[in-house]
Design a protein around this nucleic acid. Structure first.
Lengths: 195, 195
DNA sequence: GTCTATAGATGGATAGAC
DNA sequence: GTCTATCCATCTATAGAC
């Protein structure tokens, strides 16, 4: 498959448009024509950059995961305490949600996964793996340093926190309310440092 | 709008089929023809029972919410301790997920809500409202009875728990793994009784 | 209540000119 | 790399016979 770093400037705008559409309407909720209108070219021109919709969506997820990993590294570089890092992590989701109630790309695709091409599902899986790995590491470090006093295992903290954030976006949307994942993340973080 | 309790036997089978399809593929991922094939009648016959796809989906969500409320009453009747009730609540989500990784109807529709007819979104909102109300009440009772020692407010517990369960299903799907919402629910419940 | 037939729009995707 | 034109499948929905 194509790698996002090797695509042209126009192809990148195609990916930009597709990303936003997936976050707003999901894979089954957008068309090549929607993308074309946003980019300002015609539908068949999209096919020139990405032969199939599956490939386009896979590249969207691939680039999303890559950028997310960069942000995770930034968090490690700019904060030391586990609670701060986990809070900064939640802020990533909050920022996404605060943009027109956009969902996490892979949260949306994860929900739809039973109707998605395997090539897309594979990228979604990689996103969640990367997030769980990172969260587990952060939780482990925090516990070893005595910053997190929760008796949950690092893996359990990671699973729980990721599920919580993804779910908060879905519920926030379903309830048509403004409040996003940051609030529930805050609640959960309290339980990690108290008991 | 039609009420689910006033529909014919065939219409109910239509709702059954649509419910499963929404849980598997979402609103934008199924068609009247899919429903027709499952029920064993032709596509236009579906229109006889539900004039539009929006109405069908709205009735699916309406019935789903009604049944869910019945199950919540059952939980209140069969367990007294808050932790048991919350655990039984998680078991409802686990049971759904264990059926071909089906999502909660309103979790799926919540994720898709930006591309859904308002009539459907309204029913989804009612589902989440009902769940948050119930969870808040259960948490409040549990705290007053000294069964939940968490210092989080009942509202916070409710929001967090619901988000966690909805998210666990999405993440579980995206990771293509067997484990469902029950596990993370268990993790979270520990934090409610320990600190 | 179910059917065949069909409308009219839109879906993803391709051919071939420029 | 973008376009027009077009294919063919599918979509939601309707008309009208049985």
């Amino acid at each position: 498959m194509k790698h996002f770093s090797e695509i042209s400037a126009t192809a990148e705008r195609v990916v930009d448009a597709a990303e936003g559409l997936i976050q707003a309407r999901g894979y089954n909720g957008f068309s090549y024509d929607d993308v074309a209108r946003l980019v300002g070219i015609k539908k068949p021109s999209i096919h020139h950059h990405f032969a199939t919709k599956s490939e386009l969506a896979a590249v969207v997820a691939q680039r999303y995961t890559h950028r997310f990993k960069e942000l995770l590294l930034q968090i490690e570089g700019s904060s030391v305490k586990a609670a701060e890092r986990l809070s900064a992590y939640a802020a990533l989701f909050e920022k996404t949600f605060s943009t027109d109630k956009h969902l996490c790309v892979c949260g949306m695709l994860g929900a739809e996964s039973s109707s998605l091409p395997e090539i897309v599902n594979h990228e979604v899986q990689r996103f969640f793996d990367a997030n769980l790995d990172w969260l587990t590491q952060i939780a482990d470090d925090g516990q070893r340093a005595g910053q997190l006093t929760s008796k949950l295992s690092p893996q359990s903290i990671a699973e729980t926190y990721l599920s919580l954030l993804e779910g908060a976006m879905v519920v926030g949307r379903g309830m048509q309310k403004a409040s996003g994942p940051a609030i529930v993340a805050d609640h959960f973080l309290k339980t990690l440092t108290v008991n």
